[in-house]
Computed example of a mutant assay.
Amino acid sequence: MRVIAGEWRRRNLAAPKGDATRPTADRTRETLFNMLTSRLGSFEDLRVADLFAGSGALGIEALSRGAAHCLFVEQDRAALDAIRSNIAAFDARSRTAVEAGSVMQLRAAREPYDLLLLDPPYQTGAGAVALDRLLRLGWIGPATWMAVETAADEAIDVDGLDIDAERRIGKGKLTLLRLQPDIADPNTLPA
């Protein structure tokens, strides 16, 4: 696994030992970041959260392309070791934070993030559940982009979020989402 573009282009990424995580393939990551670049233009100064982070490859890629800060959230110990190893290898400690624990236990955000990257286990529905929770906890605002990798046949359907684009890649699917334009306050969504 390598960083695809930006400051750390072509540098290797550490992957977690064992088979508890499924790192995003280089081809899938490249497609995802091409989709995001066509919408965002630039990653400069973005606040990013890499959720279900695994090796942290998605967040590291965003940092390499100019993101100001990335929060990595992961609960698997081997994956956390890989994330910390990658952060150290890229000397990115000042631009990162690591939270050991479940995405489902995150607290309210002080302000919305610019980009949420989610790579939950396939066929669990965890991506949609996490997005619904994060929407209610203030992680998602009008300018937030969300990217979720799921199994190709897995649907992401969250009240208050619109699907901007979907792209199938092998056994997986990338989905980009945005807050529905008529949602001013996510806390007013029906329960």
Rank of each mutant, 00 (worst) to 15 (best):
E7K: 15
W8T: 08
R9Y: 01
R10C: 09
R11Q: 15
R11S: 09
N12P: 05
L13N: 07
L13Y: 09
A14Y: 14
A14K: 14
A15F: 13
P16R: 01
T21A: 10
T21L: 08
R22Y: 12
R22K: 08
P23R: 08
T24N: 07
T28K: 00
E30K: 07
T31F: 07
T31Y: 04
F33Y: 05
F33K: 00
S38I: 00
G41H: 10
E44K: 12
D45Y: 07
L46P: 04
R47Y: 11
A49R: 05
A49W: 13
D50M: 03
L51R: 10
S55N: 12
A57M: 04
I60T: 12
A67M: 08
H69E: 15
L71V: 03
E74W: 03
Q75W: 07
R77L: 11
A78W: 10
A79F: 00
D81S: 14
I83V: 13
R84V: 02
N86L: 05
N86Q: 02
I87P: 07
A88V: 00
A88N: 09
A89D: 15
A92R: 03
R93W: 08
S94T: 14
R95M: 09
T96M: 08
A97F: 01
A97E: 15
V98I: 13
V98Q: 09
M104Y: 04
Q105A: 12
R107Q: 15
A109I: 06
R110V: 04
E111M: 02
E111D: 12
Y113L: 09
L115T: 14
L117V: 05
L117K: 03
L117C: 06
L118K: 00
D119L: 02
D119S: 12
P120G: 02
P120K: 03
P121E: 11
Q123D: 15
Q123I: 00
V129L: 11
A130M: 12
R133S: 11
L135Y: 05
L135E: 12
G141P: 04
G141T: 03
A143Y: 08
A143F: 01
E149D: 11
E149I: 09
T150I: 08
A151K: 02
A152V: 13
A152K: 14
E154Y: 03
